[in-house]
Amino acid sequence: MNFQSVGEILDFAVAKEEQSAQFYDSLAAQVRQESMAEVFRELAREELQHKAKLLEVKQGGTFQPAPEEVADLKIAEYVVDVEPGPEMSYPDALILAMKMEKAAFKLYNDLAVSTKDAVLRGTFLALAQEEARHKLRFELEYDRNVHQDDY
């Protein structure tokens, strides 16, 4: 992958969010339980919100990482992979989502490492940070409900 400008990078990121939204929409159509279909529709909506945010950023021209670090609960690292399918449970859907965000995070981080241009690197790092934030949201939801504190 070879990117020449911030605009190009953002276009790539926008397309990725769009693809993820389509992926979740296709799962929403497959699952049997209506509540799970709603989960996937919600995930698709979240990806479209990410896309909208990136388009806004594109208007503004620059995108740099925030100074504060995003917490990493590392749940996506430790849990096993899940297969998407019509009988998926909500915890499995969360695992799927956190692993997708993790993969995106890793991609942008790797791209940042291999980029010499400071502005482009900053853009990749900002995108990586966004993905880390999305991953954290799924990890927190997973953590709160799978490790039940009143059990």
Binding site: R32, Q33, E34, S35, M36, E38, V39, S89, Y90, P91, N145, V146, H147, Q148, Y151
Partner: peptide, 23 residues
């Protein structure tokens, strides 16, 4: 012993019984 959830047997055979995302 971290937690327990809903068994899907009845919900999956009773289509008009609404559940939340945790079942």
């Amino acid at each position: 012993a971290i937690g327990a959830g809903a068994n899907p047997i009845i919900a999956s055979t009773t289509p008009d019984l609404k559940t939340n995302r945790w079942g």
